[in-house]
C-alpha cells in the first residue's frame, strides 16, 4: 500500500516539476498544485502503517494510526490551497495587464546588459578613433 502511495507521490512530484519549468503561469500553478499533492502524500506515508481511527476510537493502543502526519498534511493542504488561490489571482492580474500569463524576463537585467553593450561600443569607437589618429600621426 505505502509502495503504491510512494509511487503516486513520485509521479506527482515528477509531473509537477515538469510543469513548473514551463513559461506560462497557468501551467506553473498546476505544477505547484501537483507538487504540493505529492509532498502531502509523502507526509501522510511518513506516519507508517495503517490503523484504526485515533483519538476517538476504542481499541488496542497498538492498532491506532499515527494522527500527527494527518494533522500536518491537513495543515499543509490548507496552506497550499490559500497560496494557490493567490497565484491564480496573480495570473489573472497578469492576464488583465498583458493579455497573457507568460512569466517575462527581468527588465532591469536587460537594461544592465544593454548598458554594458553601449559601454563596449563606446570603448570600441574610442579605440578605433585612437587607432585612426595614430595612423594619421604616422603618416
Amino acid at each position: 500500500m505505502s509502495l503504491l502511495i510512494a509511487f503516486v507521490a513520485s509521479m506527482l512530484v515528477g509531473c509537477g516539476t515538469w510543469l513548473l519549468l514551463q513559461r506560462r503561469l497557468s501551467r506553473i500553478i498546476i505544477g505547484v498544485g501537483l507538487l504540493g499533492h505529492g509532498a502531502n502524500l509523502l507526509l501522510l506515508v511518513s506516519g507508517g502503517r495503517r490503523g484504526t481511527a485515533p483519538l476517538i476510537g476504542v481499541g488496542d493502543a497498538a492498532d491506532f494510526a499515527d494522527p500527527l502526519p494527518q494533522a500536518l498534511a491537513l495543515t499543509a493542504i490548507v496552506i497550499t490551497f490559500g497560496v494557490t488561490t493567490f497565484l491564480l489571482a496573480l495570473g489573472f492580474r497578469a492576464w488583465q495587464i498583458s493579455n497573457d500569463d507568460v512569466v517575462e524576463d527581468d527588465v532591469e537585467d536587460r537594461y544592465i546588459a544593454r548598458r554594458a553593450q553601449i559601454d563596449r561600443e563606446v570603448a570600441d569607437e574610442i579605440e578605433a578613433e585612437r587607432a585612426q589618429a595614430a595612423e594619421e600621426d604616422r603618416r
Binding site: 507538487l35 509523502l42 511518513s46 502526519p69 496552506i79 497560496v83 493567490f86 497565484l87 496573480l90
Partner: peptide
C-alpha cells in the same frame, strides 16, 4: 510587480514544498 511577484511566489512555494518533503522524511 506582477512579473517579479510571480517569480517570488513560485520560488517560495517550491521552497515550502521542499520543506514539507524534508519534514515528512524527518518525521518518518
Amino acid at each position: 510587480q506582477v512579473r517579479s511577484g510571480m517569480t517570488y511566489v513560485v520560488i517560495s512555494l517550491v521552497a515550502s514544498t521542499f520543506f514539507i518533503i524534508v519534514l515528512a522524511l524527518i518525521y518518518s
